[in-house]
Simulated scan of single mutants.
Amino acid sequence: MLAFLWAHEHGSFSSAARAHGLSPSAISKLVTRLENRLSVRLFQRGTRSLTLTEEGAIYLSSARSVMDAMAEADSLAEFFPAKISGTLRIHTMATFAKHQILPWLPDFLEAHPDLSVEIEVGAQYVDQFEKGLDIAIHSGVLPDSSRVARRIGESSWITCATPEYLSRRGTPEVPEDLLKHDCFHFTFSSPWNVWSYEVDGKSIVVPVKPRSTFTQGDLLRSVALSGGGIIRLADFHIGGDIKAGRLVPVLDDFRSHVVQPIYLIYANRNNLSPRIRVFVEYLERQIGLRPWKV
């Protein structure tokens, strides 16, 4: 269509070609391809000039309208980077949302009044980008996929209980002591239920038999805070409780040195929308300001 408009504007294939850095044969082939697709002749070819046919004159008006509309659409892109608006859709772990996003989310929304945020929570990563998801934030081993995963932090798992529970039942001295305590973990099958420790440089797993199981980490945290027993959760979840003394780490000398990476996942790395980019920058800044490592 552009070749057709250029040929009409310059009066010949050769003049249009010189003006736009193409060969005359290229312009001619493009116009011929357009004529074949439309099944009409758009130009009467002369030895030195081109003349529009009746069909060509009709097509010229429509082609100009199409190109004007395309130019207008392209011009709107100039405003995209500067305008942070729309709805940002996020999927993450409930505990990460509650303890590492919600505390600063009101300030973020106040800074971007035209942006809204939808947060869907789930313990495990599920690819929902085809359904409109913008980003996901999850920890652990991710399934192989074509998505882009960027490591934004890491977490370690801490075994802990309240001072009151430990005073009443005693503090475990070695990992095997856990078998004599009331312990709690997740209902669903997950590596999070593997209570692993390091003894004499070797990794061991204690086959903890939970008194109760829960689908959410916050329920585990609540039962521990009530003095119910011992739990094992990520430091990004309970770091604040430990720093405040509400929960006390146990078996720290046997804590596994294996850490779980925390990933930011999005569909592809090219042309991130402004709403995604500004959230990612804010998130990484907040993680830097609020270290949870204990």
Rank of each mutant, 00 (worst) to 15 (best):
F108I: 02
R48I: 01
F43Q: 01
A57F: 07
S12N: 10
F214N: 01
A94H: 13
T53M: 04
R277H: 13
Y263V: 01
Y266P: 03
A73L: 09
Y125Q: 01
I152A: 01
D218W: 15
S145H: 08
F254C: 00
K209S: 08
E9P: 03
S139D: 14
W157H: 14
R33I: 04
S145W: 04
A224T: 06
V117A: 06
S273N: 08
A234L: 01
M67S: 10
I204R: 04
K180P: 02
I84P: 09
K98E: 15
S61P: 06
I152T: 04
E118W: 07
D144H: 11
A82W: 09
A82I: 07
I90C: 03
T215D: 09
L283N: 01
R221H: 06
D235R: 04
I242Q: 05
E78G: 10
D107V: 05
P191F: 01
D107A: 13
S196D: 07
A7L: 02
S75Y: 09
Q260D: 13
S25I: 09
L102A: 12
G288Q: 13
I101F: 07
I276K: 07
A161C: 08
V126M: 08
Q128P: 05
R168L: 13
S85C: 13
A73C: 04
T32A: 05
V258S: 10
V194L: 03
A71D: 15
S167Y: 07
P143H: 05
G245R: 08
S61V: 15
S62K: 14
S212A: 08
D253E: 13
Q286N: 13
R169W: 05
L60K: 11
L76M: 12
S23I: 05
P274R: 04
T32N: 08
I119P: 10
W104S: 03
I231S: 00
V250G: 01
H8E: 11
D114G: 05
Q100W: 03
F129A: 00
E176F: 12
N268V: 01
T162Y: 03
F279E: 04
D107Y: 06
L22M: 14
R221P: 02
P261G: 00
E110M: 07
V141T: 15
L225W: 14
L38Q: 08
T213E: 09
M93N: 15
M93T: 13
N36Q: 12
P175T: 02
V199Y: 03
L178E: 06
I238G: 00
S146E: 15
V205L: 03
A136E: 02
L142C: 04
R33A: 14
Y197G: 00
R151K: 15
F4D: 01
A234Q: 06
